[in-house]
Design a protein around this nucleic acid. Structure first.
Length: 274
DNA sequence: AATTCGCTCAACCGCGGACCA
DNA sequence: ATGGTCCGCGGTTGAGCGAAT
């Protein structure tokens, strides 16, 4: 009856992953792709359960993950999405390319929660902690925010949405620009979001992601580009840039095996530097 | 210099829904 | 229809690290 257990519990290793284990998992996924996680440990030669492998890959090893703290704009987006979605971290993470639910959850608990409390905002309800006067907060909708002193930084996204209710529907084929602004120019993020009705409804609801015609994008001929790099550093910089864009999120699986192996080596190198 | 404290974040745990035989 | 397993999710834990004492 049913399926085989994903792991036999006995002899299954727990705790922090070693560089060797990481390499095994990365090499396996890159050569075989993501299949059923139950089979991964055996096929990859790991003494881990499939669940642990999936977690390690999705939260740490995926080449399209961003590193470092969330930017101001990302943080604001998390706050706005949390106000609408609550603790549905996976839903929130799905709207931030290159970020994982675990990462966002951690950042929320360690940083954003405190910031909101400091601002006098309940991180759970997104309402003022102290209801000093009845007119400071009237809405009962979790997606709406009060007009208390510091809420100018609380919900620019939602304010932008209200202000641009009938924006043109003409930019659904330009996600690279949208995403490239994420870390560098916070305000452009919201502007670009609000310019795109389909994307906006996707971001704020459970709609399917907008169809994107990736064939119209001007993608580099990666093989040629590799030959054109004048140095290893140039090549590495370009790869990391692509990594930061979240290549898989945008279905830009343009890397060949050689390039993925380079990414692999870069990842390993970064860890060894630690 | 040693110890304590607080913070961060990777990893684990347990649950619920989906899936399969 | 049923029972067992898989997968994904949210909550929680604890090791590691730096700051404070």
């Amino acid at each position: 009856m049913g399926r085989q257990p994903c792991c036999d519990k006995l002899g299954v290793k727990k705790g922090p992953w070693t560089a060797e284990e990481d390499n095994k998992l990365i090499n396996f996924i890159l050569t075989s792709g993501q299949c059923c996680w139950r089979a991964v440990p055996k096929l990859a030669g790991l003494r881990r359960c499939g669940k642990s492998c999936r977690l390690r890959w999705t939260n740490y090893l995926r080449p399209d993950l961003k590193r470092g703290l969330l930017t101001e704009s990302e943080e604001q987006l998390v706050i706005d999405l949390h106000a609408r979605l609550g603790n549905r971290w996976s839903k929130i993470a799905a709207r931030l390319p290159g970020r994982t639910d675990n990462e966002i959850k951690n950042h929320w608990n360690t940083h954003i929660k405190k910031k909101l409390i400091k601002r006098g905002i309940d991180p759970v309800t997104h309402e003022p902690l102290e209801k000093e006067s009845p007119d400071t907060k009237t809405s009962s909708c979790p997606g709406e925010h009060s007009s208390e002193s510091e809420n100018n930084s609380l919900s620019p996204l939602l304010e932008s949405i209200n202000a641009t209710g009938n924006s043109e529907e003409n930019s659904s084929s330009s996600p690279p620009e949208n995403c490239s602004t994420l870390s560098d120019e916070p305000h452009k993020l919201f502007d670009s979001l609000c310019e795109d009705e389909k994307l906006l409804s996707y971001l704020l609801g459970d709609d399917e992601p907008p169809l994107v015609d990736t064939t119209t994008w001007e993608l580099p001929n990666t093989a040629q580009n590799f030959n054109n790099f004048s140095s290893w550093d140039d090549c590495a910089t370009w790869l990391f840039d692509c990594q930061d864009f979240g290549v898989h999120d945008f279905e830009l699986d343009c890397f060949n095996e050689v390039e993925m192996n380079i990414l692999d080596r870069l990842e390993t190198g970064k860890k060894q530097q630690k």
